[in-house]
């Protein structure tokens, strides 16, 4: 208790004799971050709890949580495996066009999501370059939940690669050689020696990718059919509710999403602190 109090008084002390950078920082954060968050929170609090529960657990809302969070999780996990493979190839191997590939990994950060959604929906449509090829197998991507998954995989692709790459770079080859020379098989070396120190980075990347995929709107809204119970995601539902002037509905679903984002952020921080404690 005393520690939090001294904590507070110290912060106030800091603010009272604040320098210009301090003042600008806090004013800016207050105006453009705290005020909007407060608006959402206070709007949610003024609603009747029963009404909140009703909106939050409405069948359409529940189906959007399922589609949003489960699909985002699958996208995160797919990229967990693929990202590890990509990082491994980029760090350990030499091959043609390696630098180009390395630079291209960041494309989802640089390419506006509307463009991503547009081109993905064309390519994966039934007469597109890839979609036309999947059609004979009865696999349809554009305007289905699979399309949501493809868009989410696209936008969450760089995270695991970029979190694992530096860790893999710093991993000492000597330890692997030691494991080898002591008679460990290649798989044993991978599972027991290489993977454990990479795990915090992989999990952090998966969680960051998941978090990004959950909030994604632009690419998903274009590739999906946005049909309830099929491929309607929570952010699109928020916009639909706003368009119907259903502020309460939009607020409740928005708040559910905000709280889940904050929970994921907490998990990422925990993984990182734990990883640091174990692996220095």
């Amino acid at each position: 208790m005393t520690s939090t109090q001294s904590h507070k008084s110290h912060l106030w002390h800091q603010l009272a004799q604040a320098s210009w950078p301090w003042r600008v920082t806090w004013i800016y954060l207050t105006l453009f971050l705290f005020l909007p968050i407060a608006a959402l929170m206070l709007k949610a609090v003024t609603l009747d709890p029963q009404q909140i529960w009703q909106i939050a657990t409405d069948p359409v809302a529940l189906s959007t949580y399922n589609i949003t969070f489960v699909t985002a999780l699958v996208a995160g996990i797919v990229n967990g495996f693929a990202g590890l493979a990509i990082a491994w190839v980029l760090v350990r191997y030499e091959f043609p066009a390696k630098r180009l590939l390395d630079a291209a990994i960041d494309l989802p950060f640089a390419l506006p999501t509307a463009v991503a959604g547009l081109t993905l929906s064309t390519i994966y449509s039934t007469n597109g370059w890839i979609g036309g090829w999947l059609e004979p197998f009865g696999i349809r991507v554009s305007f289905t939940r699979l399309g949501v998954l493809v868009a989410m995989i696209f936008i969450s692709l760089p995270f695991v690669v970029r979190t694992v790459q530096p860790v893999l770079q710093d991993l000492e080859v000597e330890i692997e050689e030691a494991a080898w020379s002591m008679g460990a098989s290649r798989w044993q070396t991978f599972w027991r020696v290489i993977l454990p120190p990479l795990m915090p980075a992989i999990l952090t990347g998966v969680a960051m990718g998941f978090s990004r995929a959950v909030g994604e709107y632009g690419s998903v809204v274009i590739i999906a059919g946005n049909i309830p119970f099929q491929d309607l995601i929570a952010p699109v539902l928020v916009i639909q509710r706003l368009e119907q002037f259903d502020y309460a509905g939009a607020t409740v679903i928005g708040t559910v999403m905000l709280l889940i984002s904050l929970a994921v952020l907490l998990v990422i921080n925990l993984i990182q602190t734990r990883g640091r404690r174990i692996y220095g």
Partner: peptide, 18 residues
Amino acid sequence: DLPFSISPVVAGLMLVLL
């Protein structure tokens, strides 16, 4: 870093509520 964790749609919603 918080804005990176908040869905852009939710950010827009906050501004509409303000």
